[in-house]
């Protein structure tokens, strides 16, 4: 008897939670997915910036070091800079693609949850 009541209450709660989740998914889905919170936007910004600098820094460092060892300044620095810039672009593109894929996955998951209801 008590168990039945508890069961009913639990089911009721489950239903309420699911409706709220579906509503929320709808709302966030409409406003463009993961771009909701400012802190997350900042995290993405810093991530891309760092990605851009890191490749360039590594390329330049390798170029400078090789120049120092081989005495070919400034040619390897120039080469390192160009390759580093290329690596930076590759990094940024890869990051952007990955973020895109995650956003698409999240939106799909939200739609699936809403449809289940």
């Amino acid at each position: 008897m008590v168990d039945d009541q508890l069961d009913k209450r639990l089911k009721d709660l489950g239903k309420r939670v699911r409706t709220a989740q579906a509503k929320r998914a709808e709302r966030t889905g409409a406003s463009g997915g993961g771009r909701g919170k400012p802190a997350e936007g900042m995290a993405v910004g810093i991530r891309i910036t760092v990605e851009m600098i890191a490749g360039l820094a590594v390329g330049v460092c390798i170029g400078l070091y090789a120049d120092k060892q081989l005495g070919t300044a400034p040619w390897l620095l120039i080469l390192g800079f160009l390759l580093g810039a290329g690596a930076s672009f590759a990094n940024v593109l890869r990051t952007a693609r990955e973020l895109d894929a995650r956003q698409a996955r999240e939106r799909q998951a939200a739609i699936d949850r809403a449809r289940d209801e």
């Binding site: 810093i46 890191a54 820094a57 590594v58 390759l83 580093g84 290329g86 690596a87 930076s88």
Partner: peptide, 25 residues
């Protein structure tokens, strides 16, 4: 000849970006 050095630098830049991101934040 262009892609391989770029990919190697990109690979080597991973620990740099990973550490700088956390530290900078």
């Amino acid at each position: 000849p262009i892609l391989i050095p770029i990919e190697i630098i990109s690979y080597l830049s991973r620990p740099v970006s990973l550490s700088v991101r956390l530290f900078a934040n």
